[in-house]
Structures are given as C-alpha cells and as structure tokens.
Design a protein around this nucleic acid. Structure first.
Length: 450
RNA sequence: GUGGGUGUAGCUCAGUGGUAGAGCUCCGGACUGUGGCUCCGGCUGUCGCGGGUUCGAAUCCCGUCAUCCACCCCA
C-alpha cells in the first residue's frame, strides 16, 4: 500500500455518526432561518477567479484555492478558476446577476462548503461548511437585529447558553482612529494592533502600534480609551466612545446605528448576549458598517461572524445595493458540541431498531419476508444479518451496533407461527405471534427514545 | 507564511545505543438456538520516509512528509 488512504490535508471524511450529527445541526439551522423568512440558494463550488480576488483583503486573497487553467496552465501556473472562499461573495454575484428577478428585499440562506488554503488547527479546516443568512436591499438596522436574533436562536436551540455576540462598527473604528490622530493610511495596520488588545495587554499594544508608525500620543490615547471601556456596560461604552469621537459626523451616525441595534435586539433572543466591543475589527475587506462575531470561551476562533457590506454587490453591478449577513461555522459548532457532549440521544441513535437474525439457510427467504413485514407494520428501520452465522455472533453484532431488538425466526418459530423477540437492554425475550411482532416492538420502543 | 509538540500493532501508548513490548480491540474456543461478565488460546509491525554517525539506531544527527497545538487571519 504505497498510496496514503488519508484524506487530503485539512479535509475530512464523514462516517455515519459524523453525518448524523452534521445533519442534526444543519436541520436546526435551516429550520430557524426559514422561520425568519430566509430562502435557500446554492451556488457552484467554483467561481471565476476574478470574482473572488480583491474582495477579502490581502490576507484573504492569499488563502484562495486556485485552479490551474486547463491546457497551458499546467505549465505556466496560470489560474482562471478558484474554489469559493466564502458564501457572501458568490451570493453578491448572484444578486447582481439576477437583480431584476429577485424581490426588493432578498433574504437568502445558504449552507455549503467553502475552501481556504489555511494551515489546519483545532476547529480550522481547509474544507468547511458555512451557514450564511444575508439580506439585500435594506439599510435598516432591523436587518442586523433579526440576523443576530436568528443566530442566537440557532445556538440556543442547539443548547448553547454561554455565547457572546461581540458588536462593533467599521465607521466607529474609523472615527476613533481619526479622533486619535491616526492618519487614514495607517488605519488598516492600526486596526490589526488594536484587535489584539484583549490578548496582549496595554503596553504591548502601544509598542505594536508605534512599531507600525502610529505616534506614541495617538497610540496612548487609543489604549486609554479601549482599556477604559473594560467592565462597562453597553450604554456606558457607547457614551465613552461618543465622547472620544466628539463631533465626527460618520462616527456619530455609526454610534447611532449601534444604539439602534441594541435597542432592537433588547427584547429578542440575542439581547442578553450582545456586547459592544470596540476592539473587534474583522479582517475581511468588504465590511462597511456594523460588524459582529460570536464567541464561546472554550474555542480560540469564533463560532460565527458577519456584518454589513453595502458596497460589495455594487462591485459586480455598478449600482449600490445595501446588504448585511451573518455566517455560522458548522464545524466550529460541531467541535464544541462534541467536546461538551451536547447531542441529544436521538442523534446518537442506532442505525436500525431491529436486527432479524439469520442462522438457518433454509429460512433465508422467510427471514427477508419477516423483515419486510416488520418495516411495513412498524415503520422502523429493520436490518437483516446477511450471512448465515452462529446466533451468538448475531446478538453480539446487534449489541455492538446499538440495535435494541433482535428477531429470531428459526424452525421452532416458523412451525408455531411466532417470532422470538429479544430486547437487548433488558435481556428479556418473548415469543410473539408473527402478525403481532411489529406491534410488540413498537410498544417496547418507547424505552429507547431519548 | 512563522514557531513548537508528536509520528512504534487496528486503537491508546511504553521502550533514550545491544534480538520490538503492554493494555484494549480483533479472531477462535469453553457456550454447535442467544450479546454484555469470566476464563483459555491466537493473529498483527517497511518502529512515518530518506540519508548520516556507529561494530550495532525505534533510540543520536540532518533532511523530508504527515499530524496536532499556537501565531497571523478566520468559520
């Protein structure tokens, strides 16, 4: 065996138990999104490369998986296609392409894999699913509020109680930097330093900023502001930010938007989880307004994130279409749920409810017939042991797979028109009339419902 | 792209220069119409790969690959 049987780096195979868990989470996500009036769409795995480049910022562009051009590309290294990096950009392309056919307010959700040429680590893969909700056509903060509520509903229904939704605004960040006296050309690099505030501490942030060209006075002012916000509630934080930026026009308007989002979510599921965080920056290039990120204590990365991007669709259409969206990371959610054992018993269920034993070559046709009767009459999944084998092996197989009942149809049972049904959890076994076997199993099935 | 940890049986790992081990799993049997418990017996290895040092390398050195963790960034 010379060839490795492992999947490619950062990619994973999903065995039955994995798929069941994934489908459970996806089911909750779609049900919640649909309840908010979002409609599903799907787009191709592959996009023309120019659709993707220049949308994510320098760091993002570097992580795009490119596909060599057929033919001469194999030698020249030229790429004309790429695997999608997220779902937001393809969705924006779709909105631009089908603008006339789509409703004025287009609310879509999309649950599909995306690919990033990143270095894998805990909760980070090169192929992973995103669950995105986005709405185009409105600049109202009701959009942000509802999307935060939808995300909070999903997490709450999955059993999360301890998540934090960090909320900030790109224009607030810009206003703070302006007010501190940081030149526009240094905004990007200053944000990177600022983003680390909660990790590396006050002095390190100042040092970092100065190294990036920010004056010591400006860096000091920023740090005083940010660390002065610690421990304050949302209203106090917004007031402090407002005092700092003073009469800065776009900044004041942005703060107003954050106040509105807080007011609108206050009575919703998201309300208790939202926290103003002036250090939240987010690297993706296309955000223009409110930005958010969902975190949980036991994971370094985020469970989800998003924000408003009013110019992205316009990059394809040439006409401004406001948009806002939020993305939940399926694998991140699954990693935490698996570690915490948050899956309900119904998800960890056995593949079948009944195993029909097969130990008499002459009875094989009748065994298959019994299985068909049980499926029809009980509605349960019924599996037949394919090989003629010792009964002991078959009981062991059923026990290992977690199948709760074994039905035995041997010469004795066939002669008497009965089926021996054994309940593995209790060890109880009863001979029941073949016509009543399904009913017997169903009535005992309640013991195993989680 | 940067830094670090780990690669030995199907799995978890021990073995720090002298003939490759344990536990679990698996298979068979005790129990040829009954799983879990117990007991008995048995299988399994290019020690990640390539080179170097050495009389001798799983062990030391170099390289490489894989994987995990962290950084960056992100879901």
């Amino acid at each position: 065996m010379a060839v490795s049987t492992k999947p490619a780096r950062g990619m994973r195979d999903f065995l039955p138990a994995d798929v069941r868990r994934r489908e459970y989470v996806i089911g909750v996500v779609s049900a919640v999104f649909e309840a908010y009036g979002f409609e599903p769409i799907e787009t191709p795995a592959v996009e023309n490369i120019e659709t993707l480049t220049g949308k994510y910022g320098e760091e993002g562009d570097r992580l795009i998986f490119k596909i060599l051009k057929r033919g001469e590309g194999a030698t020249s290294g030229e790429a004309d296609l790429a695997l999608r990096y997220d779902l937001t950009v393809p969705m924006s392309r779709v909105v631009a392409e089908y603008r006339a056919a789509l409703p004025k307010f287009f609310k879509r959700f999309q649950i599909q894999p995306v690919w990033r040429a990143d270095r894998p680590q805990k909760g980070r893969f090169r192929e992973f699913y995103q669950c995105d909700v986005d709405a185009t056509g409105s600049t109202a903060m009701t959009v942000e509020a509802e999307q935060l509520a939808a995300a909070a509903d999903v997490l709450t229904r999955l059993g999360f109680g301890d998540f934090t939704i960090r909320l900030n605004h790109r224009q607030v960040l810009a206003a703070i930097l302006d007010a501190a006296g940081v030149g526009r050309d240094l905004h990007g690099t200053a944000l990177i330093a600022l983003d680390k505030a909660d990790k590396i501490g006050r002095d390190a942030v100042v040092t970092d900023m100065v190294a990036r060209g920010v004056t010591a006075v400006a860096a000091g002012a920023l740090v005083d502001l940010l660390f002065g916000l610690e421990g304050r509630d949302n209203a106090a934080a917004l007031d402090a930010l407002g005092a700092f930026i003073g009469t800065h026009e776009t900044g004041a308007r942005a703060l107003g938007e954050l106040r509105e989002i807080l007011a609108l979510t206050a009575g919703l599921s998201a309300g208790p989880h939202v926290r103003i965080d002036a250090t939240l920056a987010r690297g993706l290039g296309y955000y223009t307004g409110a930005i958010f990120e969902i975190n949980v204590a036991d994971l370094a990365g985020s469970l989800g994130g998003g924000g408003r991007y009013d110019d992205l669709v316009g990059m394809f259409l040439g006409q401004k279409v406001p948009a806002c969206g939020i993305s939940l990371g399926l694998e991140r959610i699954l990693v935490v749920m698996s570690e915490r054992g948050m899956f309900p018993a119904s998800v960890e269920r056995a593949p079948a409810a009944v195993l029909v034993a097969n130990f008499d070559a002459d009875a094989r046709a009748d065994v298959l017939a019994l299985a068909a009767e049980l499926r029809r009459d009980s509605g349960l999944a019924v599996e037949v042991y394919p090989d003629v084998d010792k009964l002991g092996k078959q009981f062991k197989y059923a026990a290992e797979r977690g199948i709760p009942f074994v039905a035995v149809l041997g010469a004795q049972e066939r002669a008497s028109g009965e089926v021996a049904v054994k309940t593995l959890a209790t060890g109880a076994q009863e001979a029941v009339a073949r016509t009543r076997a399904a009913e017997y199993i169903v009535s005992n099935m309640g013991l195993f419902r989680g």
